[in-house]
Amino acid sequence: MNIFANLQQEYLKAQRFRKRTIQAVRFFILICFLAVWEITADLDIIDSFFFSSPSRIIRTILQMANDYSLFHNIGITLLETVFSFVLIVLISLASAMLLWLLPSFSEVLEPYLVMLNSLPKSALAPLFIVWLGANTTTIIVAGISVALFGSILNLYQSFKSTDEEMEKLIYTLGGTKWDVLSKAILPSNIPTILSSMKVNIGLSLVGVIIGEFLAARAGLGYLIIYGSQVFKLDLVIMSIVILCFIAVLFYGIIGLLEKHIKRAA
């Protein structure tokens, strides 16, 4: 007994050590990257006008934080992204459920969905501007359009491939098609729904940035376009760095949600 307990302790210790080492190496890579970037820029090995440098980025951030314009722009992009993400999730869930409930209807629609899904959505953005005006609506629609069709197809496919015997079980208990959906298909597809959310949050960020390139007066996408036009590349690169953080943040939040749901289940 004691021996096994010791072995278990040792195993846990080794695992903790491994985890810490991995984190340390990750951090080390980041530091190296930043250091090399800063040093080469200071020594004029790379031209900091084009490539900026960590210190210039921090200076830009502090400057913009002073007059709150940084928070304003980040906030706008965040809001637009969250808004289009929520809409994507709701619309694609509802559509996939509808398609599953009406198989003939979905068979009719399938080629259209596939076509819409493979269409490069950035091609649509100029149209949205003409139709909806250069405003937030356009940006959110652009955000939605990037992920929506793929998400519908993905969810519908996964609903369809749920074990047919599960469906039969619900019928033997006197259930209806709606019961099959709500009691068997939806709960058994929660992992798929979560993984599609992970993809969608990234894609809606992409869509929102495309929208902001074309139609915004604020937001990180707008800062990138504006910065490149007036050759303030510090601004551009700072925005990109912030986008990196936002992407990681969103991904982390969905990861937490996933953990929470797994524990609740």
């Binding site: 074990d163 015997e165 599960m166 079980l169 619900i170 208990l173 006197g174 259930g175 019961d179 009691k183 068997a184 709960p187 058994s188 929660i190 289940a265």
Partner: peptide, 21 residues
């Protein structure tokens, strides 16, 4: 096959029929 739903407890699986009807 038993098709017990993995996301429901044993009791909730057993009450699936009454819940549906």
């Amino acid at each position: 096959r038993d098709h017990l739903f993995e996301w429901r407890t044993v009791l909730k699986n057993i009450l699936l029929g009454p819940e549906i009807s």
